[in-house]
Design a protein around this nucleic acid. Structure first.
Length: 197
DNA sequence: CCCTGATTCGC
DNA sequence: GCGAATCAGG
């Protein structure tokens, strides 16, 4: 495989979205995550630290060749966005679309940008709630960083407290949740009682 | 052990 | 330019 314009475009897009290198590689196919990372660097979009030379002359860097592999002083502040639903009311199929909230920014609302994930009015049936409670007992209680593509990302507890973790059980292939949580997450609309009003 | 990105360097 | 091997770390 080669880096065609189209593939590069996909790479850029996904990287900008905060996708992991492995996820991008998987999407593109025919390349490894190393290839993706390598390309990312060559494209110069590894880190978006566009420092305008505020403090030049950091280190002349002289070392170059070496018989084998000299340790490398890699300083890499790589904040990693992650997908996380604060409230136990996830319902949309968003296995790979981290809506990151890295820094408390000003509520600058540019112009209808990425603000789709908003299930808000989502009512869970009492039965489902009971089921969830049961499942939660089996949760592995993984932290954010312990989550992978194959661990259930069902949030449990209050994000504002220490009592917060993720289910973490083996997730269904291609799904963000374990079998049990997929069951309660993807409920057919019809299962919802017709709220009398 | 799973994963992440960063870097090096032979090709 | 490419990316496997490797490193460093959560």
């Amino acid at each position: 495989m080669s880096w065609t314009d189209e593939r590069v475009e996909t790479l850029k897009r996904m990287w900008a979205e905060g996708q992991s290198a492995s996820a991008i590689a998987k999407e593109l196919g025919g390349v490894t995550r190393n290839a993706v990372i390598g390309k990312v660097h060559r494209l110069g979009l590894s880190n978006r630290n566009d420092e305008a030379e505020a403090a030049p002359a950091p280190a002349p860097a002289a070392e170059k060749k070496a018989g084998k592999k000299p340790p490398k002083p890699a300083a890499s502040p790589a904040p990693e966005p992650a997908a996380a639903k604060p409230a136990p009311a996830p319902a949309q199929e968003t296995a790979a679309q981290p809506s990151f909230v890295p820094v408390p920014r000003r509520p600058i609302v540019p112009a209808g940008q990425p603000l789709p994930p908003q299930p808000s009015a989502n009512e869970i049936s009492p039965e489902a709630l009971a089921t969830v409670r049961e499942i939660e007992k089996k949760a592995r209680k993984l932290s954010l960083m312990e989550l992978t593509e194959r661990t259930c990302k069902w949030p449990i507890g209050d994000p504002a407290t220490d009592k917060f973790w993720f289910c973490g059980l083996p997730s269904q292939p291609g799904k963000p949740y374990c079998e049990a949580h997929v069951g309660v997450a993807f409920q057919p609309m019809s299962s919802r009682r017709d709220r009398r009003r």
